[in-house]
Each structure stands twice: as structure tokens, then as C-alpha cells.
């Protein structure tokens, strides 16, 4: 029971992060391997405002979100645009964006380490436990989960009930066709990329309330987000949420029952099963 609830609480935050990556890869078609670094940036911003100004991490989200949106918009427009213009096909763009985002991620880690050092950062925010069905769970995990659920819900409503959201989904399905019906594909892609980065950064702020992070941990989260996106299916909101919960549960189960040092191995086990049996994603239809 403990495992189930802890796993779901963790999975909720994972869903938020993976949703960010999914918007970037599924809509903007950028394989962003610096996604985890954006998460660390969000986490660090929350840490910094909390330790320096005693600002609650939940309030910090209110400025982390727009700031990350802006930063990611600029990254897309200035750094990634030349690659998109240059690419002759999707394969080439994939390779280029993988290398470029690696470059950004590494540079970010390098700058972080140079300015703030390589130490772990953590702070104590609402660490008290509360009782759910006979077991105690830290309040910060529950708040983070609730915030993630609210944000995912809003995103879902926006995607399915608003005009720009529909444009985003259209580009995800088929950029060429979306262009033909008058959607400005590059604008929508930039929007999706910026929004995706923003979600990831917010996810980072939330995670920092209950996990200890350091500057170079980003790649681990990139890896997890990628596994979730592939398991859920690229561009599939429902699939990503289910996949995130599965990963959260699997990691918690392995950490509690076997060894906390094996969480990545657990993620890989799931990844291999997905690759062998459902490479098109949990709810995806097989394509030939």
C-alpha cells in the first residue's frame, strides 16, 4: 500500500516532466536531451528563492513558469531555428537536435558547477508527514502531486478545448497538413517547445521540495522522461500519464523491495519490455 501511494505521488510529478518533453518532441519535433537540465534549473530556482527569500516553492512556480517559457522560446528561435532550416529530413534534424541539446545541457551543467559548485542542494519545506490510510506520507510530496495534477488537467483542457491547443494537436499529428490549413507551424512549434520547457521547469520546482538534487543529475531525469514518452506514445497525453504512473510505481517498488540503487535498472526493464512488445506506445496502434 505504501508503495502504491508513494509510487503514484512520484508518478504524478514525472507525468508533468514527461508532458513537457512530449510537447517538445511530439509537436516541435525536437529531441531535447537538455530537458533534465531545464528541470534542474527549475529546481534550483525554487531552492534559491526559498533559501534566500523564504518564498514558498508553490509561489516560486508563478515566476518559474513564465521565465522558463521565455527562455525556451528564445532557445527555439535562436539556437534551434538554424538547425530546422538546415535539415533536409527529419532524421538529420533529430541527429542535429540531439547534439545541440546535449551541448546546451553540458554547458548548463558546466556553468552551474562553476558558479554554485557541484554540491547537492536541498531544503526543508513542509516535510511533516500526514496520515493516509494508516501510513504517513510527507506533505510536500502530496502538494507536489496535487500541483502536478492541476497543471496536467489545465494542459489537457487547453489542448482539447481551445483554438491554440487544437492547432498544437494538429501540428503533432501532421505538420505539413497543419500548414496547409493555415496554421503557422513554426509559431505553434515554438509555442509548444516553450510550453514544454516551462512544464518541465515547474516539474523541477515541485520535485525539489522532496528530492535532493545536484547540478549534474539532469540527464537521469531526461532518461526517465524519454522512457515515459516512448512508453506512453509520442504525442499521446493519456498514454504519458499512465506511463508516468507505471514508472513511478515500478521505481518505488524496486527501491523499497530490492535496493534504492537500482531505480534506473527498473526503468530500463520497463523500457526493454516496451521496445519488445509495444514500441508504438501503450495506446498506439501498430503501424507497418
Amino acid at each position: 500500500m505504501d508503495i502504491l501511494i508513494t509510487g503514484i505521488l512520484l508518478g504524478g510529478t514525472y507525468a508533468l516532466i514527461a508532458m513537457g518533453l512530449n510537447l517538445q518532441y511530439g509537436v516541435a519535433r525536437i529531441m531535447n536531451l537538455a530537458n533534465g537540465e531545464m528541470l534542474v534549473a527549475g529546481a534550483f530556482a525554487a531552492f534559491w528563492t526559498y533559501t534566500a527569500g523564504q518564498v514558498s516553492p508553490i509561489l516560486a512556480i508563478l515566476f518559474v513558469a513564465p521565465l522558463a517559457f521565455l527562455v525556451n522560446w528564445i532557445i527555439y528561435r535562436i539556437i534551434l531555428m538554424p538547425l530546422i532550416k538546415r535539415a533536409k529530413n527529419q532524421g538529420q534534424l533529430e541527429v542535429d537536435s540531439i547534439l545541440a541539446t546535449f551541448g546546451m545541457g553540458f554547458a548548463f551543467v558546466g556553468i552551474m558547477v562553476a558558479t554554485f559548485g557541484a554540491e547537492y542542494f536541498s531544503y526543508d519545506y513542509l516535510g511533516d508527514g500526514i496520515l493516509i490510510i494508516g501510513s504517513t506520507f510527507a506533505l510536500n510530496r502530496i502538494i507536489a502531486f496535487a500541483a502536478a495534477v492541476i497543471i496536467c488537467g489545465l494542459l489537457y483542457l487547453w489542448l482539447y478545448w481551445s483554438r491554440p491547443g487544437t492547432a498544437v494537436r494538429a501540428v503533432a499529428v501532421n505538420p505539413q497538413a497543419a500548414g496547409l490549413v493555415g496554421i503557422n507551424v513554426l509559431r505553434v512549434s515554438a509555442l509548444a517547445f516553450a510550453l514544454g520547457g516551462s512544464l518541465t521547469a515547474v516539474g523541477g520546482s515541485l520535485i525539489s521540495t522532496f528530492l535532493t538534487l545536484d547540478a549534474s543529475i539532469g540527464v537521469l531525469f531526461t532518461m526517465k522522461a524519454l522512457i515515459i514518452v516512448i512508453m506512453g506514445g509520442v504525442g499521446d497525453v493519456r498514454g504519458v500519464i499512465v506511463a508516468a504512473l507505471i514508472l513511478g510505481l515500478a521505481e518505488t517498488a524496486v527501491a523499497t523491495l530490492i535496493d534504492p540503487g537500482l531505480t534506473l535498472a527498473a526503468a530500463y526493464l520497463i523500457f526493454i519490455l516496451v521496445l519488445l512488445f509495444r514500441p508504438q506506445g501503450l495506446f498506439g496502434k501498430p503501424t507497418s
Binding site: E94, I98, L220, D259, G261, L262, A265, Y268, F271, L275
Partner: peptide
């Protein structure tokens, strides 16, 4: 066998965490 029958992205992602995963397994 797990990844190269599929598209290149799966391969990149799989190899990205492979060293860390094996390190965890070996330590364990």
C-alpha cells in the same frame, strides 16, 4: 536486437543511460 529494428531515436535513448544502468547493476 532490442533497438536497431526500430528507429534511431530509440537506439540513442537506450544507449544514453546504458552505462549508468550497468553500473547500478554491477554495484548491486
Amino acid at each position: 536486437l532490442a533497438t536497431l529494428r526500430l528507429s534511431g531515436v530509440y537506439f540513442v535513448i537506450f544507449t544514453l543511460g546504458l552505462a549508468e544502468m550497468i553500473r547500478q547493476l554491477v554495484s548491486w
